[in-house]
Design a protein around this nucleic acid. Structure first.
Length: 644
RNA sequence: GCCGGUAUAGCUCAGUUGGCCAGAGCAGCUGAUUUGUAAUCAGCUGGUCGGGGGUUCGAAUCCCUCUACCGGCUCCA
């Protein structure tokens, strides 16, 4: 007998050779029907394989991430099988489960897989799934594994890197794949599949390697779940900032101006200005001083900073002048300029920390395929600042910046973000400048700060800037893509390159430490992600138009104009719909424009000197005197703008 | 930059196997209507069918090429 401990702590006895499925069966037939994967003593095991002895067992169904993972991992096998049947010469590589579905990277040789081929693959997959083929994991020797994949250089490479004795194959139906395990009991669980798209993907993620065809798919245990998922995707697309930005007249692009160069329309510009003013106020309070620097800088500036060596070839190329040998670069970041401001006069330790802030517009030649709405552009404005401080001050300054970022996120209602500590890739030291000692100091100060703050964080290696590690605040867009918004970076290297100094209490010269930080990240990206988060329903303090006055007919235009003037006197952003339209129409249009408050005025209101208030979405607040409405708006705005 | 897709009026989209002057709704303009909580009615204006080249008696439709956009990959100071 074996003793199995279940997640609730209870221990049950089973006969030797019992499987996770048998355990599920003993709990309930329903669970047995729904169990998709299992972990035994923390290791993923096959559901139908005998459990090796006593231990803790956790069973997973569709409702748990682990269950979905097994489901999609198994579906990837079926996808590979279908592809192999339709394209016998295709060479399979890897195919993992991902957050939403799975993919398989395939070398199709000369064949190019296209969208019109998806239906055939889906049909074949369903045909395979209906066979109710059992997934069976088996151990295989390295020699036999290599022999099996003798015609497949990709699998061969994978196997070469595995240790003999740890290699397993998974069989189902007539298909076999190199696999570590974690499968559904059989293929019949898969009731709906959809091939989502194809993309090029480099073998092992390296641009220098051959580009394979990545086939993305998703599958479900019920047809209705697939429909739901597709519906959800459609809904998410309605919140796409590119769509909303157009609908709400916030920004646009012009092929003639150039790709990746956003044009802010009046409403967008006003909104962005409001965000800037909000941050400027918070920064003033936190001891930042504004500086202003030009949009170009001499090439020498970037040679000194190291940016030229690192990015020069892939950047907007230098601007030549009539003077031979004179070259300027569009500034791709503000730090070198700020370093020169620091250097413009000598500093004492008593001056520090110095915090230079600038909404600095920078230009980066991003690869054309990378450009994406407002989230990835070639010209954008950073809410940048550089803090020059002593080594002793780094921790406190860093913590204060974290507080500022958190204050901004809280005010704008970004509840779901990930704090990511971005460190260097220890395997690729050539990607970074500066000595090991500086890097270690910088990295440990960031790790200490996040620990001190007690905030949850993830560590990503290889995500650091080339001059220093970062703490990045990642937020997802409507479609679940992750974007870096706020960033805080500790830098011991640029102060060295620019030979920055201050005189210490000991009358000796010392090198300051630099903290780069941008709470929004960039105005463009921040507005984009904010748009998607609020689906265009901006907070009242930020929204382009707060109020629209809807007169019932032209007879009430005079009264409406009085109201408009009054609201303007109170700095409330109001519009008047003077069109000769029915009220229903005016309300509809105001709803579409997502204006928070509609003031309906007719005979009744003019007589009693009131307004009828309708909120965006349909809530009727009834009639009230205009003074009372103004108070209501002001209170709503101050409730949103919590003090830091 | 790479793989796959898309490009028709200001916006959202039709346009059948290449074939009469390229269509609709919304927006805009003009007029009528004077309107009470999500679209009043009528008329009108508006298009180098993304750009260039080619095949053809004939191209929005087929081919080549460039550009931009969309989904990924790689990249992201």
């Amino acid at each position: 007998m074996i003793a199995i401990t279940l997640p609730d702590g209870s221990v049950r006895e089973y006969e030797n050779g019992s499987s996770a499925f048998d355990v599920a069966m003993s709990i309930s037939a329903g669970l047995a029907r729904n169990v998709l994967s299992a972990q035994f003593n923390g290791q993923t095991v096959e559901i139908k394989d005998p459990l090796p002895g006593d231990g803790a067992l956790v069973l997973y169904t569709w409702d748990q991430a682990e269950g979905k993972k097994a489901f999609w991992h198994s579906s990837a096998h079926v996808l590979a099988q279908a592809i192999q049947k339709i394209y016998p010469s295709a060479r399979l590589t890897i195919g993992p489960a991902i957050e939403n579905g799975f993919y398989y990277d395939v070398d199709f040789g000369e064949v190019s897989l296209q969208e019109k081929d998806f239906a055939e693959i889906e049909t074949k997959m369903m045909e395979m799934a209906r066979q109710k083929a059992v997934f069976k994991l088996r151990a295989i020797s390295k020699e036999d594994a290599l022999k099996y994949y003798s015609g497949n250089p990709y699998k061969t490479e994978l196997i070469e890197n595995l240790e003999d004795g740890t290699i397993t194959f998974c069989d189902h139906s007539d298909f076999t794949d190199l696999c570590r395990g974690g499968h559904l009991p059989n293929t019949e669980f898969i009731k709906a599949v959809k091939v989502m798209n194809v993309a090029g993907a480099y073998w092992r993620g390296d641009e220098k390697n051959k580009q394979l065809t990545r086939v993305y798919g998703i599958s479900f245990p019920k047809k209705s779940l697939l429909d739901e998922y597709l519906h959800l995707l459609e809904e998410a697309k309605k919140r796409d900032h590119r769509k909303l930005g157009k609908e709400l007249d916030l920004f646009t692009f012009s092929q003639k101006v150039g790709q990746g160069l956003p044009l802010w329309l009046p409403k967008g510009a006003a909104l962005r200005d409001r965000l800037e003013q909000f941050l400027k106020k918070a920064q003033k309070k936190a001891g930042y001083v504004p500086v202003i620097t030009p949009h170009i800088g001499s090439k020498e500036l970037y040679v000194t900073s190291g940016h030229y060596a690192k990015y020069g070839a892939d950047s907007f190329q230098p601007i030549a002048t009539p003077e031979a040998g004179e070259e300027y670069l569009l500034k791709p970041m503000n730090c070198p300029h700020h370093c020169e401001i620091y250097k413009s006069r000598p500093h004492s330790y008593k001056d520090l920390p110095i915090r230079y802030a600038e909404f600095g517009t920078v230009y980066r030649y991003e690869q054309s395929g990378e450009l994406h709405g407002l989230t990835r552009v070639r010209g954008f404005t950073q809410d940048d600042a550089h803090i020059f401080c002593t080594a002793d001050q780094v921790r406190e300054e860093f913590n204060k910046v974290i507080d500022l970022v958190l204050y901004i996120f809280k005010t704008l209602d970004f509840k779901e973000f990930t704090a990511q500590v971005s460190l260097r890739d220890p395997e690729k030291p050539e990607k970074y400048i500066g000595g090991l000692e500086n890097w270690e100091k910088a990295e440990s100060s960031i790790l200490e700060a996040v620990k001190e703050k007690g905030m949850p964080y993830v560590v990503e290696y290889g995500e650091a800037a080339f001059y220093g590690p970062k703490l990045d605040f990642m937020v997802r867009d409507a479609l679940g893509r992750s974007w870096q918004l706020g960033t805080i970076q500790v830098d011991y290297n640029l102060p060295e390159r620019f030979e920055l100094e201050y005189k210490g209490a000991d009358n000796e010269m010392h090198r300051p430490v630099m903290i780069h930080r941008a709470p929004f990240g960039s105005m463009e990206r921040f507005v984009a992600v904010l748009l998607e988060h609020c689906a265009g329903n901006f907070p009242l303090w930020l929204t382009p138009e707060q109020i629209i006055i809807l007169p019932i007919s032209e007879k009430y235009l005079d009264y409406s104009k009085e109201l408009l003037k009054l609201l303007d006197n109170y700095d409330i952003r109001a519009l008047l719909d003077e069109r000769n339209e029915k009220t229903g129409r005016k309300i509809r249009d105001a709803e579409m424009q997502k204006i928070p408050y509609m003031l309906i005025v007719g005979e009744k209101e003019e007589e009693t000197q009131t307004v009828s208030v309708r909120k965006h979405g349909g809530e009727d607040l009834g009639s009230m005197p205009i003074d009372q409405f103004i108070q209501l708006v002001n209170e709503a705005v101050s409730a949103e703008l919590i003090d830091n």
